[in-house]
Amino acid sequence: MAWIWFHKLGSPPHFYRLAGRMTPWFAWPALLLCLGGLYGGLVSAPADYQQGEGFRIIYVHAPAAWLSVMIYSAMAVYAAVGRIWRINVCHALAASCAGIGASFTLVALVTGSLWGRPMWGTYWEWDPRLTSELVLLFLYLGYMGLRSAIDDTARADRASAVLAIVGAVNVPIIHYSVTWWNSLHQAPSVMKFGKSSMPASMLIPLLMMLLGFTLFFVAIMLVRARGEVLRRERGAQWVAEAAVEA
């Protein structure tokens, strides 16, 4: 009885309609949180005593880096659920995650480089955190390349799901790279157990940006997944009705 909602979510018409209704509920709070976070981060937060105004890059770098890892984790979970229970909607969700994840991984790498130049004196260093993040970008690109290389959707789903699941081993490596090895990258200052090492005036805008980016990802993923579901189910009667309604 408790699993009925889960099985209902696996139904493409139910998912398509629910995702359409839910998207604005994620998109508008995301916009408000990001605007608030930007104001807090760019205007009201004080300059860092060591990094000066350059620290403000953190308000786009940290949310992008968080999304890069979180989206990959979500993609691997969707792929695993799709593979194990053969739920097509989960494969559609996993496929929808890849492009968004790759774009934010690129943002995390580039903004990290732009921060690194004035702070470390170099745009790039083969540091464990940077290298594992670069591997994550290649995993996303590999997943997308594999999917587009296989014409049959069911085969593409199965093959890409294996890659997504195996690649998930990189997620804890990224997270713990700064504690397992000597790293130029700073240790976690927000997402660590106990008290954050940032003052509230800096931390609150960052948390707003983190939440705003997360909600933005969900909204975009739902829009992409709706298109993916329509393409997969194009022969079904409900799709004809949905296309006429739209």
Binding site: G54, V107, R224, L230
Partner: peptide
């Protein structure tokens, strides 16, 4: 370093919105 970081992020956010909407419209 600060403004190019924000510029790139804004560009990626806008591109994500545009491509997602286009993809749904194309499927319909």
């Amino acid at each position: 370093w600060v403004w190019p970081s924000y510029g790139l992020t804004l560009l990626v956010v806008v591109l994500n919105i545009v491509t997602a909407r286009r993809s749904l419209r194309a499927a319909r």
